[in-house]
Nucleic acid binder design. Structure first.
Lengths: 344, 344
DNA sequence: GGAGGTCTTGATAGCGCTAACAGTAGCAGA
DNA sequence: TCTGCTACTGTTAGCGCTATCAAGACCTCC
């Protein structure tokens, strides 16, 4: 039988091809490629040369099915566009790096239905664990998480009942603290600017906590302004102008995130508003970006990187002491007064 | 033998469980769950009820192995932290949404070795296609891409030889055009500010094209300044101050990206530099963020969303006319002069 | 000398699903 | 009545890999 010409229609390679090319069993090839079990140096060498020269890429689908192990960790977050989640991701990837585990991201756009769909899709790949933002999920999502039989870490928030483990900060408390700081600095006519996002539970909780803080001082919000979509910086300018036109005697503006806060700050500087004496400003998140602004906006960092690190550690089983699951790690954000709150 | 009490240690469910619970064969369950093939309404109903009440989640690993089809598309990009790639991702996800295909992202941090590793990992899941940033890869990466036997789309750049398809803009030309516009506006003492990133080939090509543009006008760069790491906005300020201190007679600064450009702009405004008369500024990318700045930075949009859309269309086989592969789509960025280049 | 290692390799049996084909029933048309 | 179809359901045989066990070769130590 004559060999067909060099370029035969290429099937995708399997272990068998490498096994034939190197003259050992498939099992041995598998062992070499996974660095598992004893294989003599000469055999190992032969196999590696054969695999490389063929350009063999293992099929993890088959491998995962056979071994019942998948090196994937599902990460489900609402968005990637504001700076907050990328930073969480950094913490996660960095921590997972030397564990052989690999994050796979799903985006929900703050939609519970979408979250449910993304979760279903993820679980159908049988990941080793799931990291998911928030504690609020549809009943179906919660049921899936509960019966998945893998570690689940709910991140960002700890005001609620986690399915399994949770790592985050208390947004209720964050809002409360900010209110206290503002009141302590002597501001009294306080406005709030935020997003129209009923499903952003963390922003909602911050506002709730903020209101509570004001109430304890016998105050309440003097005005509110909400937006949806568009460039946050620009929206911050527009909203600031709008709220001040409507309620000119406001002496403080609390923004639900740093980006609109920064927009507000720029508007004030452009329009000669005396910050922080005539008007104080504060945001939330501690976005690094703001470091370059002419003045530093008061904010509260959300411990984003740390949250990612801790969550990944739980999934990777790296937590100290033999804790098995159901961990609850609360982190504590610190207030950064910047230049936009009066010093007391 | 007595049945163990209700709460027995839960194995993960398989088709067989649903099949037993609903009294039909596994095959029929499979058909119902995938909506494929004819199944009577009554059977369908029975199966769906059983599946739902058990909380069955299909195992895509087994499904993919059996069907030799994987609904995943690998997307390999250098970074997620500057605003450029998230926007490409939006275009991709949006386009893939109704195709049953699902993007899976890998990040390389501009490291060719990392890219190689990420690519290997991705290919081992046998995705339906790969979208990868840039045309420059290690020989091993290129070999993998060539022999993967799936559609490959290299994005962002088209100055080079693609493995299969390519969608992007010419960064060489982008740099050249910007140089021409600057020269035409009468600027002569031109500085460049960029990142220390030998592996950011697109930034390199823009600079190359920019130099060529200056040379054609008998000019050359009067000074250069590079940075690495840190908050881009902040770095933009610092670098601007540094380059102007060193070469005070510069009349134009070309930044390799909008963020440092924005930092530069803020510095100029803070320090009373007359922009654009005494000093002109320009960046690159067309980042939406900049909309909120006091003055609009000259820039060039990089067609990021469109790139994502076209790339996804190629993978999904949505391209018009029966083109099979090896498509090359060039997009053309437009110059947005903003307020930081003198009107001619 | 033989029991009991260690090291290395291979054979076998699935993992949970789906492609492909093989029925079976029911019904229209000749 | 039989053929030929459509609608539905089940059986069989893998997909490409790994867990597990078995076995051969070669030692070591009483």
């Amino acid at each position: 039988m004559t060999k067909p010409p060099a370029t035969e229609p290429r099937r995708t390679l399997t272990l068998r091809d490498v096994s034939e090319a190197s003259g050992v069993s498939e099992m041995t090839v598998s062992r070499v490629l996974r660095n598992r079990g004893d294989v003599s140096d000469t055999t190992r060498e032969k196999v590696l040369i054969a695999a490389r020269s063929l350009g063999y890429v293992p099929n993890k689908i088959a491998g995962a099915l056979a071994s019942q192990r998948v090196n994937l960790v599902g990460v489900i977050i609402p968005s990637m566009s504001n700076m907050v989640f990328p930073e969480v991701m950094m913490g996660i990837s960095e921590t997972l790096e030397d564990t052989g585990l690999q994050p796979v991201v799903g985006i929900t756009n703050y939609s519970p239905e979408r979250e449910e769909a993304v979760l279903y899709e993820m679980l159908s790949w049988r990941p080793s664990g799931v990291i998911i933002a928030g504690l609020e999920h549809t009943p179906a999502s919660r049921a899936m998480l509960e019966s998945a039989g893998i570690p689940i870490v709910e991140i960002m928030d700890i005001d609620g009942e986690p399915v399994d483990s949770a790592v985050g900060i208390s947004h209720l408390r964050a809002g409360l603290q900010m209110a206290e700081a503002i009141v302590a600095a002597g501001y009294r006519r306080i406005g709030f600017l935020g997003t129209k996002m009923p499903e952003d539970h963390r922003a909602r909780k911050r506002l709730e906590g903020f209101r509570e803080g004001l109430r304890r001082a016998g105050l309440e919000l003097a005005d509110e302004e909400y937006y949806a979509g568009g460039s946050a910086l620009m929206k911050g300018r527009e909203m600031t102008e709008a709220i001040l036109r409507r309620t000119p005697d406001l002496d403080f503006l609390y923004y639900s995130n740093d980006m609109i806060g920064a927009g507000g700050l720029l508007w004030c500087l452009d329009n000669g508003v005396d910050v922080p004496n005539r008007l104080g400003l504060a945001g939330f998140n501690g976005v690094e970006l703001l470091d370059g602004l002419p003045r530093k906006l008061a904010t509260m960092d959300a411990c984003r990187r740390e949250i990612g690190i801790h969550a990944a550690e739980i999934i990777a089983g790296k937590r100290p002491s033999g804790v098995v699951g159901g961990e609850r790690i609360e982190l504590f954000p610190t207030l950064q007064p910047g230049d936009t709150i009066r010093k007391v």
